[in-house]
Design a protein around this nucleic acid. Structure first.
Lengths: 343, 343
DNA sequence: TTGTATGCGTTATCAG
DNA sequence: CTGATAACGCATACAA
C-alpha cells in the first residue's frame, strides 16, 4: 500500500503538500500538483479512508439496520428493492453502506447502537423493525441520526419515510365498492405495525363514506405472514360466507388468502375478490395476478437516503417523507355477483 | 464519544492498562480490570474500530461486490439469499459487510479495487459478475483476497463457490427422459456465464447417455432474462413443434418459456414439459408450479464467507467449494404424450 | 502488574 | 505557495 509519504518522498515535497494537492486545494502550484498526481497514479495510490476518518471523524458510512436478513422473510422483494434505492442515493452522495443484521452470532452480544458507534457510522437506516423492537428505542435514544422505514417517529435526529397508507387502503377499498361489493372484510398485519393502523383506518373510512357499517369481527390479523393469513382468512370465510371481497394489508397475506379461498372452493375473482398491498414481485406472477396497491420501494430507499443526508447536514426542516402509491388492477377483483343479501 | 483516555483518567491508570484490560490480556490485575470494566460500562464506552483498524491494519470488513442492485434483476431472490448466508457467517466470524454496487454515480469514477483499498476491506465477495466483466479481472489482479460466486477462477488469493451445475442439469434432463421425452430442447443463459457452460455440458451428457442425438439448433440463449427467453423459446417452439420438453438454465427463463408456451397454445405440462434451474421464490408460485433444480443460495453465501476466511487466514488448501443441488419435481413436467415421431 | 513512548495514514493549524 | 508539527484513538514493544 502506497501512502502519501511515499508520494512525498518520490516528489521531493512534504506530505502536507501531497495531501493538499490530491484533495484539490487551490493553494498549490499547478506544476507540483501535476507532478504529484502523476506520481500518485504511477504508484497506484488510494487514500486510506480509515486514517482519514480518524482525523476528520467522518466515515462517510451509513449503517443499514435490518431486522432479518435470514432465511425467511425473503419472499417479499421489499428489502432488496429498498436497499437498491438506498444504495443508489448513498453512492451519489459519496457514502457507502455497511450492513447490520440481527440474525447473527453477535445478535445479543452487541446492540445496534454499539455496532453503529464502533463503526462510527454517521447515520443509520432502520428497516423491517416492529414498533416495539428493543433495538429501535435503543438506536433512537443513542442519538445516532436515523431514518426509519414505515415507523412514524421523528425528532431532532430521527425521521421516517413511509407511503400514504390510509390513502392506499382507501383506493383499494373504493375499487372493491365500485365493483358492487359491500361485504368487504380485511386481513390486517398486526398492531405493532404502523402501516396496519393506517391501512385499517383507510378501510374504515372508505366503508363509512359508502355507508357500509364497519364490523370489527371482519378484521383479522394475519401477522404479515402468508400462513397465518391463510388460516385466519379461512376461518373468516367459513364463518361468514357472505363476505364477497377481501382487502389484505400485504401481498403476501393476500396470497395466503387466495390459497384459503381455493381450499374453500371459492373461485377468484368470480366468487371472491381479493386486493393486496405492496405490489411485490410475486403479485404479478400470482394466479390469478393480484390486484394491489403498488408502492415504489426503490424510491422509498432512495428517499430514505436523501432524508438521512438532510439530517446529517443539519437541515432542521425535513424529517418526514410520505410517498404516494397507486392501485394496480389485475385479475383478483371483479364485479360482485354474490347471491346472499347485503347487510 | 468516550475513549480509553477518559476511562484511564477516571480509573487513575494509563491508557495502556485500559486497553489491555478491555482486550482480555492476562497480565492485568483482576481488581483493576473489574474497575476498568465497570467504568467503561458506566461511560457507555464503545471501542473506536476506525482507530483500532488504523493501528492493527485489520478492518474486520468484507466487501460485498454486486454487479447490480438496481431496479432490474431483483426478481430472483438469488442475491438476497446469498447475502443472508454471507451475512450470517460474517457475523459469526466477527466481520461486517460493506456493500459496493456498480450502479451508482461513482460507477466509472472509482473502480471496485479502489473502493476496496480505500475502505481497507480485508477481502471481497463478488456476486453476479459476468466472466468478461472488467471489474472482475481488476479485482483479481489487485490481489485482494476474493471469493467469486459461480465463476471458476482460483489462485493464491482467489477462490470460488458454485454448485455442481453439470450434475444438476443431468438430473433435470434425466427426469425428462424418464418421463418419456426425447425431443428435449434447452434454453441456456449466455456464453459469458460459467454455469451456462456446465449446464449445457450436463444436458449434452445426459442426452448422450440416453442415446439421443444432440442438436445444436435446439439450444438457444435466453441471456438469463425472462423476456429474451420468452422470445427465443417461442421461435424455437414454432420452428420445431416436435419439441416436447424444455430444459431452462434458470427459473426466470423458464417462466419466460412458460409464457411463450401459453401463447402458442401449448398446455403445460400436458403438451410441453418445462424444467428450470435455481428454485427461486417465484418457482413455487408459478402457475403451474415449476419443476426445477434447487440450490441452497443461503448456504452458498455462507460457504463463500467461510472460504474467504480460509483465504484470509492463510490456509493454502481450500480454494473451491462445490455445493450440491437436487431436483424439485413440481407440476411443469409430466409424461410425454407427443403424437409426432421421435428423431 | 503497570506505565512510557511510538506509530498507524491522514488532515489541520500555523508559521514561513 | 510550502513545510513542520500536532492530533485523531488505539495497540504494542519495551522499560520499570
Amino acid at each position: 500500500m502506497t501512502t502519501i509519504k511515499d508520494i512525498a518522498k518520490e516528489a521531493g515535497v512534504s506530505v502536507t503538500t501531497v495531501s493538499r494537492a490530491l484533495n484539490g486545494y487551490y493553494d498549490v502550484n499547478e506544476n507540483t500538483r501535476k507532478k504529484i498526481q502523476q506520481i500518485a497514479a504511477e504508484l497506484n495510490y488510494s487514500p486510506n479512508s480509515v486514517a482519514r476518518s480518524l482525523v476528520t471523524s467522518k466515515t462517510k458510512t451509513i449503517g443499514l439496520l435490518v431486522s432479518e436478513l435470514s432465511r425467511s422473510a425473503l419472499k417479499d422483494s421489499f428489502m432488496v428493492e429498498i436497499m437498491g434505492g438506498l444504495n443508489a442515493y448513498a453512492g451519489e452522495a459519496g457514502y457507502d453502506l455497511i450492513l447490520f443484521s440481527t440474525d447473527s452470532a453477535k445478535q445479543r452480544l452487541k446492540s445496534y447502537s454499539q455496532l453503529c458507534r464502533e463503526r462510527q457510522v454517521e447515520g443509520a437506516i432502520m428497516l423491517g423493525m416492529k414498533k416495539d423492537d428493543p433495538y429501535l428505542t435503543e438506536v433512537i435514544e443513542s442519538n445516532i441520526p436515523c431514518v426509519l422505514i414505515d415507523i412514524e417517529m421523528s425528532g431532532e435526529n430521527v425521521g421516517y419515510v413511509t407511503t400514504d397508507n390510509e390513502f392506499g387502503a382507501q383506493t383499494a377499498v373504493k375499487h372493491l365498492i365500485n365493483l358492487g361489493h359491500r361485504n368487504i372484510a380485511m386481513v390486517n398485519g398486526h398492531d405493532q405495525a404502523l402501516v396496519s393502523q393506517h391501512r385499517l383506518k383507510g378501510y374504515k373510512k372508505e366503508l363509512q363514506e359508502a355507508g357500509i357499517t364497519f364490523r370489527q369481527h371482519w378484521v383479522v390479523d394475519g401477522q404479515f405472514q402468508e400462513e397465518t393469513a391463510e388460516k385466519e382468512a379461512e376461518k373468516l370465510l367459513q364463518e361468514y360466507p357472505e363476505i364477497s371481497a377481501l382487502f389484505c394489508a400485504s401481498d403476501l397475506m393476500a396470497l395466503g388468502a387466495m390459497r384459503s379461498a381455493k381450499k374453500l372452493g371459492r373461485n377468484i375473482p368470480e366468487s371472491l375478490s381479493i386486493a393486496g398491498f405492496d405490489d411485490i414481485v410475486l403479485a404479478s406472477y400470482a394466479h390469478p395476478p393480484l390486484t394491489t396497491v403498488a408502492q415504489d420501494k426503490y424510491k422509498m430507499g432512495y428517499e430514505a437516503g436523501k432524508l438521512l443526508l438532510h439530517i446529517l447536514n443539519g437541515d432542521p426542516t425535513k424529517r418526514v417523507t410520505i410517498l404516494d402509491n397507486h392501485l394496480v388492477i389485475r385479475n383478483t377483483t371483479t364485479a360482485n355477483n354474490q347471491k346472499v343479501p347485503f347487510n
